[in-house]
Design a protein around this nucleic acid. Structure first.
Length: 483
RNA sequence: UCCCCAGUAGCUCAGUCGGUAGAGCGGGUGGCUGUUAACCACCAUGUCCGUGGUUCGAGUCCGCGCUGGGGAGCCA
């Protein structure tokens, strides 16, 4: 008999069969299923997914979140508390010690014959998760319990793995991680409505000449939650060369769509001494890295997505990981769309922004893979994007991918002070509040570029989930801040 | 915010022409020596989203409201 109890913490999980001490000593089920051998003893703890009882024998499917797979626990009348165990409800938390054996039945390689089962937390018949398919809409109403389901287990394991892959990618490339502020006084970053942050009494606001006196507020000025870390990120790029941000972002827009949330996570790299082409190259490396990472590190969960969420997603992600991305000028994209043998719902003409239907046509029909669209008309892009020599376009890029359209948007930034000031005036941005941003163009300015990627949209793209509310642990959307 | 669709048992849904409420799953009880979303038998499910109206009679038709979903806009 093999004894697997060895000391070790969470960090060494992959290399130790059992972690923790005393009551916490147990093997994670994914490790046990992958590395366990018949004949060894093992201790596990987890939540019961199903109970199947026969006369004198009961099977428990136990899951601890470490993988999609459950381990089959076999309980028989040799157990002191067999009657209790055979009547366990779905959702109960139990700790099991026993002996690993080869399973005589098909469906699993190993099973754990219990010598002791401790009921740690019982679950009665009111437990909302049943042994059946539930709609995602229903599961959103029980967001506190849905991580215990197959789909959400797979989604949030993949989300965690991807978040770590983001950091790993940038660390490998020598990018510095910057924590840009969550609370900001920039009310004109140009990217949507911001949530107000205040300690003023809302039922008795201090007024001066009929207007709210923000001098009396906590920060002595009007503040809100960040809608982007880009502007501060640029300042750090102009000191550390290559940086990225990865943090929460807030938009108070009343958007009710499967792709928008009021609180989401955004990744924004910024590179000094870099132009638009370097920016696109980084974006390509980045997306391909993340796709490969998901396929390799989350293969079980990806297989689940392919089987149950979106057929063929593994092939699609593999194709992106292996492809070389195309690049097309905005002007060429427009002429391709104008010549397209299909009718679009929205008009196509130089100067108009591309709609999702246009983006998908370009990436799916014209290119047949990921494509950067570059050099957009300046009138439809943000003030900080660098003006091209033609005086009518800016060095902006959108990365379009099949099925979703735009997934990454970025640009080379306007590093020339006079042109930046001119664009601020043209677009109605008040330079006063951004004096520090302008200062960065005054001393040691240099060409620099960056992009933004909404993390949830990445997770949606890679998992095939179609609603952003189902890739956020506890989504915040209009009228929803529960849990 | 605009447009469209939906709301019936714990869940997923059916409910015909307006005539007084159903199925599957889940749950309970019992049975079954090895099950795989176990199986077999029996049992119990209900503010038909709310509100007002039409009608002899409304789950069903009409108005208003609430909630959810999808599409659009905004965008990541």
């Amino acid at each position: 008999m093999q004894e697997w109890i060895v000391p070790g913490g969470y960090a060494t999980m992959k290399s130790k069969l059992i972690q923790g001490v005393g009551m916490t000593a147990r093997t994670r089920i994914n490790i046990l299923l992958a590395d366990g051998c018949p004949g060894g003893s093992a201790a596990i703890a987890g939540w019961v997914r199903t109970v199947r009882s026969g006369k004198g024998i009961t099977f428990l499917a136990l899951n601890d979140g470490s993988s999609l797979e459950c381990i089959q626990v076999v309980a028989d009348t040799g157990l002191e508390n067999f009657t209790v165990v055979s009547r366990l409800g779905t959702g109960s938390a139990v700790r099991v010690t026993g002996m690993l054996q080869e399973s005589p039945a098909s469906g699993q390689r190993l099973e754990l014959h219990a010598t002791e089962i401790t009921v740690i937390g019982s679950a009665d018949q009111d437990y909302p998760l049943q042994k059946k398919r539930h709609s995602f809409e229903f599961l959103r109403e029980i967001a506190h319990l849905r991580p215990r389901t197959n789909t959400f287990g797979a989604v949030f394991r993949t989300r965690s793995a991807l978040a770590q892959a983001v950091h790993r990618f940038f660390a490998e490339k020598g990018f510095m991680y910057v924590h840009t502020p969550i609370i900001t006084a920039n009310d004109c970053e140009g990217a949507g409505e911001l949530f107000r942050v205040t300690t003023l009494p809302l039922d008795n606001l201090p007024l001066t000449n009929g207007k709210v006196d923000f001098n009396a507020d906590f920060f002595g000025q009007a503040t809100g939650l960040t809608v982007s870390g880009q502007l501060e990120g640029e300042l750090f790029a102009l000191a550390f060369s290559d940086i990225y941000t990865f943090g929460p972002t807030f938009r108070a827009e009343n958007s009710n769509t499967p792709r928008h949330a009021a609180e989401f996570w955004m990744i924004e790299p910024e590179m000094a001494f870099a132009d638009l082409m370097a920016d696109a190259a980084l974006a390509e490396d980045f997306l391909r890295y993340l796709c490969s990472f998901a396929l390799e590190e989350c293969s079980n969960d990806m297989a689940f997505f392919d089987a149950h969420i979106e057929k063929g997603i593994i092939g699609r992600i593999r194709a992106v990981a292996d492809s070389s991305f195309a690049m097309m000028d905005y002007s060429e994209a427009i002429s391709r769309l104008e010549k397209a043998p299909v009718t679009f719902q929205y008009p196509v003409s130089w100067g108009l922004d591309l709609q999702t239907e246009h983006e998908r046509y370009l990436t799916e029909q014209v290119v047949g893979g990921p494509v950067f669209i570059v050099n957009y008309p300046k009138a439809i892009k943000a003030f900080y994007m660098r003006q091209n020599d033609d005086a009518r376009t800016v060095a902006a890029m959108d990365l379009l991918v099949p099925k979703v359209g735009e997934i990454i948007g970025g640009s080379q930034r306007e590093e020339r002070l006079d042109l930046l000031q001119q664009r601020m005036l043209e677009t109605g941005i008040n330079p006063e509040g951004l004096w520090w941003y302008l200062d960065s163009r005054r001393w040691g300015s240099c060409p620099h570029a960056g992009f933004g990627l909404g993390f949830e949209r990445l997770v949606m793209y890679i998992t095939g989930m179609e609603n952003i509310r189902d890739v956020l642990p506890f989504p915040r959307t209009p009228r929803h801040a529960g849990f």
